[in-house]
């Protein structure tokens, strides 16, 4: 791995403002992949840009959760993900219908066991997903901001710094309260009683 790569990865892992700067640098460094792919795939430029963004976000997420171990350079790794994303987009265009694996995202939660994944795939249905999506829309601005920052992979300490909370513990407590509020379900409460 190049020194430049190591430096960028360290900056991303440092978090918040360092992460933002390093992300911008890394993003712009390989933005030319889009132009290179113009003649390679039957996709228009906006689709290629979207694929590049998806690939870039996947790379950053993998740097953050340690799945990117630096066995290859960031360029090679990003290029591989970008190619896969382009192929996915081409396939999606070829047969424009919803995937039957709507709950495939469950497998991205790396700590879930295979038993849990299979049980959850049976339990989760479209109606349940819609319910939670609707509940998210009703959520207050503070909670929504906290949860989306959490979803972006910022640590409790970073969110505390960003949103002006006292400390990481307060963030954890507030997140827990927000989740309880979000998943307030009268029907279910009755069931549990």
């Amino acid at each position: 791995m190049k020194d430049n790569d190591i430096e960028l990865i360290q900056e991303i892992r440092k978090g918040y403002l360092h992460r933002r700067r390093a992300e911008t640098k890394l993003f712009q460094q390989y933005q030319y992949f889009v132009q290179q792919a113009v003649n390679k795939y039957a996709l228009d430029e906006s689709e290629l840009e979207s694929a590049y963004c998806d690939a870039f976000m996947a790379l950053v997420e993998q740097i953050l959760d340690g799945r990117f171990r630096g066995e290859s350079s960031t360029k090679t790794y990003l290029y591989r993900i970008f190619n896969n994303k382009c192929l996915d987009a081409v396939r999606k265009n070829a047969r424009d219908k919803r995937s039957i694996h709507d709950t495939a995202w469950i497998e991205d939660w790396t700590h879930l066991s295979s038993r849990a994944i299979s049980a959850l795939k049976t339990l989760i249905n479209q109606e349940m997903i819609e319910e939670v999506k609707q509940a998210f829309k009703k959520l207050g601005e503070k909670c929504a901001m906290l949860l989306t920052n959490w979803g972006r992979g910022y640590s409790a300490k970073e969110i505390a710094d960003m949103l002006g909370y006292k400390n990481a513990h307060t963030i954890r407590t507030t997140k827990s309260r927000c989740m309880d509020k979000l998943l307030e379900d009268d029907k279910l409460r009755e069931q549990l009683k």
């Binding site: 349940m128 920052n149 959490w150 979803g151």
Partner: peptide, 26 residues
């Protein structure tokens, strides 16, 4: 089943947070 329902919703909420964050990021 009741446990599964609550757990599932919790997981969906986390996934939704992740997706909203990704959409904003993108």
């Amino acid at each position: 089943n009741a446990f599964g329902q609550v757990f599932s919703r919790y997981l969906i909420a986390n996934q939704e947070a992740k997706e909203l964050a990704r959409a904003k990021w993108k």
